[in-house]
Amino acid sequence: MLLLYLLRPAPDLVTVGPPQTVESSLPILAVHTRLADEVEEWKIKRSLEMVREMGATSIVEFFPWAYYHDNSGGIAWEHPDLVVNHAHAQGLKVIARLGFSPDWVRPEDAPLNYLDESGYDDFAVFAAAFAERYKGKVTAIIVWNEPNLSFEWGYRETTAADYVGLLRQTHAAVKEVNPSIQILGGALAPTLEPPGSPWGLNDLIYLDEMYQAGAADYMDGLAVHTYGFKFPPEFEPSPDVLNFRRVELLREVMVAHGDAEKKIFITEMGWNDHPRWTRAVKPGQRIAYTLEALEYTAAELPYVEVAAIWMFRTPAPIKSYMDYFTLVTPEFIPKPIYLALQERATAGQE
């Protein structure tokens, strides 16, 4: 008996824990987490605890299809289960970004972002399985990422009609198993690339072309990325400028196509405070601009459902300007911008 006792399996060191509730006086506040490459469960849990403690109500998280789905149809759910279940326990809504093609749906040597029409069905099958498994826990799915950039579209020609084909097939498959989950088009990258550019296509033109290709029937909302770069948040929007308020121009395209009822989900936003990146601002400006942008969005842009700051934390330092987008260090030390957001979002809460 003693031997059996000693040989018993070790108890789980990390548990999901009791359900929590987010207390926030800034409900549009969300954050894009980077948990797809985080392998340790306690770090996943700690990240999501800190997101809740900051007062964010939602997370945007990337779920790489290629990591989970093998060519026999099997799906390894262990890691996405950890992320979704911990987020749910923390009271956080999950907006899931799906992308990255497994090698069995793309030509040899094609990049992970490559998916042509022959693979749309396979993607839709995975998206539907995902939506069914996480019913009630994942509130929205973003179909792919920044399809108006050549790099994100596997270096294929970036045509909106092509992307709407993926959106259509995914929408049909997902809604069949989970009608309440929201399908988000995009997320569109802010870019000024003109038609014919090998690098991508201007997001305003691309969105217009999405509507012409019938996107309105296949999306419940639009996901957009809107960065401030060097501009303060109040800087006027203009078609030839990339700044935070570009989201208002995208909204105008939606309204022009009779889609005013739908919400915009800002799934990436923010400023960077790297000391040498040419598009960065000072750390103090980053804090002030981020807070001002959130206040402005909450007060002036009622069609914005959430505004997710890129990005919460990375598992290890990237050693480039990307490290200066984070709110928390890899060691979970909160940066001053985290504390400022927390102070604002939890003001007046118990």
Binding site: P283, I287, K335, P336
Partner: peptide, 13 residues
């Protein structure tokens, strides 16, 4: 420290 800088992060720690 400079507000929001690496020095600020370290000082919090």
């Amino acid at each position: 420290v400079e507000l929001g800088s690496e020095g600020h992060v370290q000082s919090i720690e």
